[in-house]
Design a protein around this nucleic acid. Structure first.
Lengths: 124, 124
DNA sequence: ATGCTTGTAAGCATTCATGCTTACAAGCAT
DNA sequence: ATGCTTGTAAGCATGAATGCTTACAAGCAT
């Protein structure tokens, strides 16, 4: 990853400015008030919900990696997960089961990367 | 899995009765009011939070499988995941990344089971 | 019949999250 | 100097979530 962002708010601020949107313009597009968006950018309020994050990704024209990164930031530090993940996880019992196995056996980056590689080879 | 439970409330009711606890006894142990526990057992309120679920599992002497099952029920139908999972997922960027790869490549039960088997062989 | 235990109905208090309106200070342009 | 744009401070409204207290009906025992 090229750049580091400390928080969700910082991320969307930088991206917005990079696209030369004013805060008010962006607020109108997302259908929220300007002060509310300001608060979110300053990390004084929670990140947006799934739908608005999708819209945000689209408006900011984030590539796949940036979008994932944004979703991760949106879940960070809270007691929840990134908002794009719960559905996939909880609709398949074998996914939550696998996560617990990985957790309990203390699987690390190496094992997970191996899994990803395997997937890419078989499906990608 | 031997028995099927329709909901979180039903599960903890059956388990409680199996251990011959009255609702009031269990409420006292969990440090909640009896009517509140009653509501939860009837699925009129949300399942408990992580700490109380842990205590519940301990008091009911659930085995590992039952405990996991209970956590899954506690996350089901809501927009969140089972309360024992967020920490493991969000503290490791490669886990959320792998989940997205699996989701996007449409990995199914077979691939996930293979992963689990691999883990057990290498670590277990 | 009385009295206790059991679960639950009804309703209230409190907190937290979400999102808004209004107003303002700083910067920049005319 | 005036006026506009920008972001933000301050505060309010609303709804959802959490958890309680009080009271009651049904069952069971004495």
């Amino acid at each position: 990853m090229s750049t580091e962002y400390g928080s969700f708010g910082e991320f969307i601020t930088v991206k917005r400015e990079g696209k030369d949107f004013t805060l008010r313009e962006m607020a109108r597009i997302l259908e929220v008030s300007a002060p509310y968006l300001s608060d979110v950018e300053k990390d004084r309020r929670n990140p947006f919900d799934f739908d608005r994050l999708e819209k945000l990704a689209s408006v900011l024209e984030l590539d796949a990696g940036e979008k994932d990164y944004m979703f991760d930031l949106a879940g960070k530090g809270r007691k929840t997960v990134a908002p794009d993940l719960p559905e996939y996880i909880m609709e398949r019992d074998y996914v939550s089961a696998a996560l617990r196995t990985a957790r309990d056996l203390d699987a690390g980056e190496e094992e997970w990367m191996r899994f990803v590689e395997e997937l890419k080879q078989r499906k990608g």
